[in-house]
């Protein structure tokens, strides 16, 4: 809190009003509506809805298809998060070590941040395309026939690789700025104490990076859960069929294409709960990370 504060007049209310208004209309109303609709069964031909209690949730959670999508989402998020963090960390550590050209490397490695996920998806689709894609050609050299959009595993692999590609730059930027904020004295002391650069990394650098890492972990899980929507949409070329998809995609699919309002809303609420859990976890970690710094 500020020590010196203006006396209250109409001004603070006028200044707060636009933000509060937008938040209420476009955040709280829709969120509340999602919760309400999740307890109702909408009449598909218009005209009212019936209260069905937690039936929508029961239906969703016992649906084999939903369970399958949830499983895929779990593995998808795990792989995307792990690899985009690991690749970014490796590159950041190397970019931090090299004496010359560090700045050029930084630009060359970070600019993909600006590319929209669907654009990344479109380029990826071409790279994996059955007729023109170079990656498919390489796979063919090893005797493997890659079929995006037909073969479940191939499609999943393409989605995962494209999503990783898109996320590496953000992680790279954060890791590099984390590395650069490690005090010089600490680095020099570590250099004297520990000759092996491998061990120095795991015993000194890595723990110092832990706060950045925790923060990025949450960011990446959120990314894998929500922001990859466009990648998935583009890779499956608008034809869900039996293609792999994430939970968010299913919310969209059931809500807009399937017109299953109650089911889609129930799925929304489940996702909301998931995000809330993640956030609570994040705050816990932030509290704990105070000890590191």
């Amino acid at each position: 809190m500020k020590r010196v504060i203006f006396g209250s007049s109409w001004l603070p209310y006028a200044f707060l009003a636009p933000q509060i208004l937008i938040v209420i209309i476009f955040f709280y109303l829709p969120a509340a509506e999602a919760v309400r609709a999740s307890f109702y069964l909408e009449n598909p031909f218009g005209g009212g809805s019936t209260f069905v209690g937690i039936d929508n949730y029961k239906d969703v959670l016992t649906d084999d298809n939903y369970v399958r999508v949830a499983k895929f989402t779990f593995w998808f998020s795990l792989l995307v998060t792990f690899f985009s963090l690991a690749i970014a960390l490796l590159l950041a550590v190397k970019a931090d070590t090299v004496l010359r050209g560090a700045k050029s490397y930084r630009i060359l490695l970070m600019w993909v941040y600006a590319i929209a996920p669907p654009v990344a998806g479109l380029i990826g689709v071409l790279m994996f395309d059955q007729h023109v894609g170079p990656i498919t050609d390489v796979a063919a050299l090893f005797g493997y026939k890659m079929q995006i959009g037909v073969n479940y595993n191939d499609t999943a692999a393409a989605m995962i690789i494209i999503s990783i590609w898109k996320q590496v730059p953000v992680n790279f930027i954060f890791f590099l700025s984390g590395l650069q904020s490690i005090p010089k004295a600490v680095r020099e002391a570590a250099q004297i104490d520990c000759r092996s650069s491998w061990r120095r990394f795991w015993t000194v650098t890595f723990p110092m990076l832990a706060p950045t890492g925790f923060f990025l972990l949450i960011i990446n899980i959120t990314y894998a859960l929500f922001d990859t929507f466009a990648v998935i949409d583009v890779v499956m070329k608008n034809e869900p069929g039996s293609n792999p998809m994430t939970l968010v995609y299913k919310v969209y699919l059931d809500g807009f294409r399937g017109s299953d309002l109650g089911g889609s809303s129930a799925q929304s609420v489940i996702l909301m709960a998931l995000v809330l859990l993640l956030t609570i976890f994040q705050f816990r970690m932030i509290e704990r990370r105070v000890h590191y710094t």
Partner: peptide, 21 residues
């Protein structure tokens, strides 16, 4: 009221948001 919005991305409330708009 303002900071709770940090918790939920647009994607989870996409259908009701669409209806309101």
């Amino acid at each position: 009221v303002i900071f709770t919005t940090l918790l939920l991305p647009l994607e989870v409330r996409i259908l009701p948001s669409y209806e309101i708009v």
